[in-house]
Design a binder for these strands. Structure first.
Lengths: 332, 332
DNA sequence: ATGAAAGCGCTAACAT
DNA sequence: ATGTTAGCGCTTTCAT
């Protein structure tokens, strides 16, 4: 199980010290606290270190200090196109601050989520969890073990950044209402997804406000095939337009609709969410996913340095984007 | 720069040893070499360890052994839909073997590629590089520092798994030829991409074989917008069909074509590559991306244990998938 | 401003 | 089958 081949022999602080004619601690200071040293010493040691190709051993440093420069990023499903932009932003922001990122895919599974974090816990300073599916209690427990930042999950006392679909969904429903739609269906995504509940609630609220009737159809999984499959059930809802949990699901619905000889948007209007697809030009609700990732890392970094006492809850707004998949209803 | 907050105080091997009334080394053996111990001792220590919530400190272990249970995964662009399935497979396979995965996005940039690997080098046992853009020399140099496995980059002496578009592309061109197309355009992707050269060569070869004329149009970046943009240039090539570097580019081309009042496949046929998109139902060349990721990890694990002396080069086949974006040419 | 020395938690000889 | 012990490379008091 444990590999036999030893890691490549690396240059140690001792070798640098000898070559530079100083003590190990001086070399250490050059890298950790150069200000208290003579400028010349620093320059000299740096030069020697560079020549020898020295770089501090992370394991030794971590062992000695009890700290490290890694964070974990755990997502429910990397292949969901909503994730990569966030992962990218997280990795970029972390790198800019000298941190490296472990990636973990939880397979939409709370247990795997916890297992991953447990496995990683002693190698990271903290973690960013995107749309975690675990119970609030488990997440709370975890948060007492290591700094955590959540994306799209609203748990009190745990720092979180939320992409609030409320505004975008409201605009979407208003748009539909103005075009004359009188009945819409919300096609739901994963059961235990905060975003799903939030979007559903937002649509419900907005529909009520505009006096249009609304039904809910849970798709469970937000996948292309699931979208295709659900079209018959969707049509039997009797609405003239639907708002899907996300773009992937909406895309599947579009395909299923077309397969059923219906034209979009002439016969049926479809609205997605997340704004992550190139094609079709889906009318959708767009949110700042990358920004959320970046902010999450910022928050994590601050709580690494000085655990905040306040309850941090950052809310990011969304907006409706009108494209090709919405039109007036066929029969008014 | 270095965080002030110390990591959570963890249970050490010493505490477990005391609680279990044995020596530290016995506890260590329970976790690393249980076979040589009395069954009862193992059971007892395991029990105590579990009660105390002990888990070995990775930093201490890494420092002592010079090995660790991490690998790095570096990709040129995580948001390219070709990557997530590979990343997922890599993480899964690594986890199954008790390894954790660092993710690095190189931004299609050779320097960032090397920087990431350098940063990670002392925290990982090896790395999987997907479509690396660096020079062969740099990669070779790196390979002498740590075990490396390449995906879709063919460098002698470096273990690599290649998704060979040759077969799929040949089938694609044959299909086109049989439908009566006499002139095709290959729309190229990233300059320094092995896959791109490989696909281009495969198309060239197959076109020659079927006696149809072929032109090349380099798009450079394989993005949706780039695909849209290039359509005018594509049309001026005078072909009746194109094969694009990848599905994303093909998708953009489809959109651009439609914007130009052309119908697909009636007026123009489009073939993509990678088979990663749900929609449109792109005729494409499909390859086992996830499998490649899994194999890459397998190879990496073997070379972690026993560096192979042979030149490892795994080739995975592709196949042509006929869907909705190819038809006979309009004018024969 | 720099050196000396202890020790982080663990594993792997080497004893017994 | 288990205990003893040294030491991985580094940071950090404490001395000077």
């Amino acid at each position: 199980m444990v590999p036999k081949r030893p890691a490549i022999k690396r240059v140690t602080i001792q070798q640098v010290a000898e070559a530079a004619g100083v003590n190990r601690s001086t070399v250490s200071r050059v890298f950790n606290n150069p200000d208290i040293l003579l400028e010349e010493t620093v320059r000299n040691v740096r030069e020697v270190a560079r020549k020898l190709g020295y770089s501090p051993n992370a394991a030794a440093r971590a062992l000695r200090t009890g700290r490290n420069s890694n964070i974990a990023l755990v997502v429910p499903d990397l292949t969901n196109p909503f994730m990569p932009p966030i992962a990218l932003a997280v990795q970029k922001e972390a790198a800019a601050r000298g941190y490296s990122v472990f990636i973990g895919n939880a397979d939409e599974n709370p247990n795997q989520e916890m297992d991953l974090l447990k496995r990683l816990s002693d190698q990271v300073g903290g973690a960013v969890l995107v749309s975690p599916r675990s119970d609030s209690e488990q997440i709370h427990a975890l948060a007492s073990d290591m700094p955590l930042v959540l994306i799209n999950r609203d748990i009190k006392e745990v720092p979180r950044v939320l992409i609030d679909s409320g505004q975008g969904m409201a605009q979407a429903v208003r748009h539909l209402a103005q075009l004359g739609h009188r009945r819409v269906t919300y096609v739901g995504g994963p059961e235990n997804s905060w975003s799903n509940s939030q979007r559903c609630a937002a649509v419900t609220h907005a529909a009520h406000e505009h006096g249009i009737s609304m039904s809910t159809l849970p798709a469970g999984t937000a996948s292309f095939v699931r979208g295709v499959e659900i079209v018959p059930a969707l049509l039997s809802c009797g609405a003239t337009a639907c708002i899907a949990f996300d773009d992937v699901l909406a895309q599947g619905i579009c395909y299923g609709l077309v397969e059923n000889e219906l034209e979009i948007p002439e016969d049926y209007s479809v609205i997605g969410c997340d704004d992550i697809l190139g094609y079709p030009m889906l009318t959708t609700v767009s949110g700042p996913a990358a920004k959320a990732g970046q902010i999450a890392v910022d928050l994590l970094m601050s709580s690494l340095n000085t655990p905040s006492e306040e309850d941090v809850r950052i809310v990011l707004e969304t907006e409706f984007v009108s494209r090709d998949t919405v039109g007036p209803p066929k029969y008014r």
